[in-house]
C-alpha cells in the first residue's frame, strides 16, 4: 500500500474516533425527541416482511412500508379476508407504532368489521359452524382490544384511541365496563379542549357506574344546563333523551328534592320507550347499554310490574 493510501486510511480512522462519541450524543438527542425509536424486526416480523423488507425497514423506509402494507390490508378487507387484515395491520403497527391512526384503524377493523363479518355468516344451519363463528367473532373482538391496549401504551393520551377504547368497553366487552368507559372518555376530554362528545359519553357511562351516581348527576346536569343556557340554547324538549333519562333516574335514586330537580318533559321519555320497547328481545339482545336504558325507562316512567320486560 502506498503512503497516500496509508494517510487516507489514517484520516478516516481519526475521523471515526472523533465522530463516534459525537454520533452517540446525536443519537441520544434524537431519541430524546422521540426520533429513531425503531427496533430490529423480530422473528415473525422478519418472516412476514422478507429479508429485503426487513432491510428496507431498517434502511429508512418504515413509513413507506407501513403505508404499502396498509393498502394491502385494505385490499384484504375489501375481500373480507380478515385473517390477512389482522396480519397486515400487525405489521403496519409494528413498523410505525408512533402513528396512532394505525392502531385505531386496526382495532376498528377487527372489533367492528371482522366481528360483524363473522357474526353475519348465518346462512348455514350447521351448529358447529355457528359455534365457530361465535368464537371467531369473539377472537376478533379480543384482537381489536389488544390493538387498542398496545396503541394506548404508545399513545396514552390519544383522543381517538381513548374514545375507541370507551366505545369498545361498552359495545364489545361482555359484561360491559361502564366505569372503565367513563375513565377512557375522561382521558379523551383531557386530550382536547372542545371535547363535547366525550364529555357527554363520560357522564352517561358514569351514570351506569355503581358508586358514582352523585358525580354522574352533577356532570349530567351541568351538560343539560349548558345546552339550555349556553351560547346556542336549545328548547328543553330537544335535550337528548338519554341525558334526561339518566338525570331523572339519578334524581330519584339520590332522592333530590322536587324543587331542586331539573325541569324534564316526561313525554320525551315516553316516546323513547314506545320506540325502543317493541323491537327489544332480552333473549337475543347483545347491547347491555340498551337493556340498562330500557330498565331505567321503566323505573322512571313507573311502568306497572306486569308490563315490564323480563330481563
Amino acid at each position: 500500500m502506498t503512503k497516500a493510501r496509508w494517510i487516507a486510511c489514517a484520516v478516516l480512522v481519526a475521523f471515526g474516533v472523533i465522530r463516534i462519541p459525537i454520533e452517540d450524543r446525536l443519537a441520544a438527542d434524537l431519541k430524546a425527541h422521540q426520533f429513531h425509536e425503531m427496533t430490529i424486526p423480530d422473528g415473525s416480523m422478519r418472516e412476514q416482511l422478507g429479508q429485503l423488507g426487513a432491510a428496507a425497514a431498517l434502511g429508512g423506509f418504515r413509513s413507506f412500508l407501513a403505508t404499502m402494507f396498509e393498502l394491502n390490508a385494505i385490499a384484504a378487507y375489501r375481500e373480507s379476508d380478515y385473517a390477512n387484515v389482522e396480519t397486515r395491520y400487525q405489521l403496519v403497527t409494528q413498523l410505525q407504532p408512533s402513528e396512532s391512526g394505525y392502531w385505531e384503524t386496526a382495532a376498528w377493523m377487527m372489533d367492528s368489521n371482522a366481528r360483524r363479518f363473522y357474526l353475519g355468516m348465518d346462512n348455514e344451519v350447521d351448529v358447529k359452524a355457528q359455534g365457530k363463528r361465535g368464537l371467531l367473532a369473539q377472537r376478533a373482538v379480543e384482537r381489536g382490544r389488544r390493538f387498542l391496549d398496545d396503541g394506548l401504551r404508545y399513545h396514552p393520551g390519544d383522543y381517538k384511541l381513548q374514545i375507541a377504547l370507551g366505545n369498545h368497553l361498552v359495545e364489545r366487552q361482555r359484561p360491559a365496563d361502564f366505569c372503565g368507559a367513563a375513565e377512557a372518555f375522561a382521558k379523551a376530554i383531557e386530550a382536547r379542549d372542545d371535547a363535547t362528545l366525550p364529555t357527554r359519553h363520560h357522564a352517561l357511562n358514569l351514570a351506569l357506574c355503581p358508586g358514582h351516581e352523585r358525580e354522574a348527576y352533577v356532570k349530567l346536569r351541568a351538560i343539560a344546563e349548558r345546552l339550555v343556557r349556553g351560547d346556542y340554547p336549545i328548547p328543553l324538549d330537544q335535550i337528548p333523551a338519554s341525558l334526561i333519562l339518566h338525570m331523572r333516574y339519578l334524581e330519584e335514586y339520590l332522592k333530590i328534592a322536587e324543587d331542586d330537580r331539573f325541569p324534564i318533559n316526561l313525554d320525551v321519555l315516553r316516546r323513547l320507550y314506545a320506540r325502543l320497547r317493541p323491537g327489544f328481545d332480552p333473549a337475543t339482545n347483545t347491547d347491555e347499554r340498551h337493556a340498562h336504558v330500557l330498565r331505567r325507562l321503566e323505573d322512571v316512567l313507573a311502568i306497572p310490574e306486569g308490563d315490564r320486560i323480563r330481563f
Binding site: L12, I20, L30, H36, M38, S63
Partner: peptide
C-alpha cells in the same frame, strides 16, 4: 469506526408521522 453512520440522516419516517 470504519463504516459511515447513515442512520443520523434518517428523519423521514418520524417527520411523516
Amino acid at each position: 469506526l470504519i463504516f459511515p453512520n447513515f442512520q443520523s440522516f434518517n428523519l423521514v419516517d418520524d417527520v411523516v408521522s
